[in-house]
Design a protein around this nucleic acid. Sequence first.
DNA 1: TCAATAGTGTCTTTCAGACAATATAAT
DNA 2: ATTATATTGTCTGAAAGACACTATTGA
Lengths: 250, 250
Amino acid sequence: MNEQDFLASYDPRAYPAVAVTADVVALTIRDNALHLLLIRRAEPPYAGHWALPGGFVRPDEDLTTAARRELAEETGLGGDRLRRVHVEQLASYGAPERDPRMRIVSVAHLAFAPDLPDATAGTDADEADWVPVAELPGRELAFDHRRIVDDGLERARSKLEYTPLATRFLAPEFTIGELRAVYETVWGHPLHAGNFHRKVLSVPGFVESTGANTERGGSRGGPRARLYRAGDARLLHPALLRPAREETVR
Amino acid sequence: MNEQDFLASYDPRAYPAVAVTADVVALTIRDNALHLLLIRRAEPPYAGHWALPGGFVRPDEDLTTAARRELAEETGLGGDRLRRVHVEQLASYGAPERDPRMRIVSVAHLAFAPDLPDATAGTDADEADWVPVAELPGRELAFDHRRIVDDGLERARSKLEYTPLATRFLAPEFTIGELRAVYETVWGHPLHAGNFHRKVLSVPGFVESTGANTERGGSRGGPRARLYRAGDARLLHPALLRPAREETVR
DNA sequence: TCAATAGTGTCTTTCAGACAATATAAT
DNA sequence: ATTATATTGTCTGAAAGACACTATTGA
């Protein structure tokens, strides 16, 4: 250990400054398609590129608090609407060269939101928009945000398997069909309606009946569906596993 | 947004400095008990308290690289032995008051190690030791390290379910009985030997036979067991689920 | 010989998935 | 009437868990 390292082990200021940002992979479902909140950067580096919403963590803020604040700024959301958004930590990204300006460690978060109003650009962005995830392959994202988004999407797909968080994409009351649409959209697979229905009702605490029904049947006919709200389970047991994906296993 | 925040959104140096550390929840199995690597702090704050090994991330280091370095310093390990240790990111902890000196964001990592030699204290510790996890409730840990350890243990238990990482607690060649002992130790439950045996062999890519047998049977008798090494699966499918834990679900 | 462990066989229950059937409501 | 959707029923196969059994070896 050289002298600089020795000093630094006692005083981090002996090292060049590190900045910590909270970035958010915010997902919602619009028009039966998974959408991701992106901003268009106004300033270099990567000016004009699309990027994840985020910003520096403030001195008095917890990491998740910072993520929620950044999300609020870009969605123009507050109060009850924001409270219904699920935010959890995803992972931290800190490769030395990930930002050309200086050492920046990004604590990425993952958010599940019910269908929200259009986004509104914050201070450091020209534009903020919900972008269909299906259109992402064509867009170049700033920094290592592509990787972060990929990790977030995989985490989201996995979370639907063993937690009841799919309900966070929906209004407080929903039908089993709407819940199934969430799974189909996030997983990108059609699911068997009958089997899904029975499965959801058989998992303890996943959903609870409100006793009410929808006012109308589907737009193209069908009976009025029963309404449910999220139950008290935090984990699904047994889980709803994705259709086999032998390929991804090795 | 006030002026300070506005400036800070462009220049993080307008905020008080943040330091980033890499801490490690390193687990190993000794004498059929799960052990955690802890150091005894030499300097305030929390001088004399037990804490997780860790330290400041250096300018040229990736986060996981820093965690591996810290682990190497406290275990005196290098080369091949270190390479067989599994290290993954756990989560980041950044509550504003978690360190009384200054704002410190800790990127915690989780490590699975085969039985290693005794630990050797690094520069900022009086002592480093593998401590039985069962003895933790009696010890007060520094900072929010208790919470980090709890999160790490839960992650470890969960990882054994759907990944083949249990093999990382063992030598390159092992018996099914030794593998079962890992599961029993980490999960804290006895498992049925026969069912476990059949299950492990039925999961594609979990283990592969070496063709060889152990030299001797068990110390108290029994046949010589077949030897296996880790297979090429990165995920177990189907998973080995923990015995039902209805309690933890709500 | 006795006790412990490895490995296999069998049975029951649970659960996932395929498929069918019935009922209801919008057009 | 036709069509789409909700909901329930039935069957099959995979897999988990309980239990029993045999074979092998150290003490």
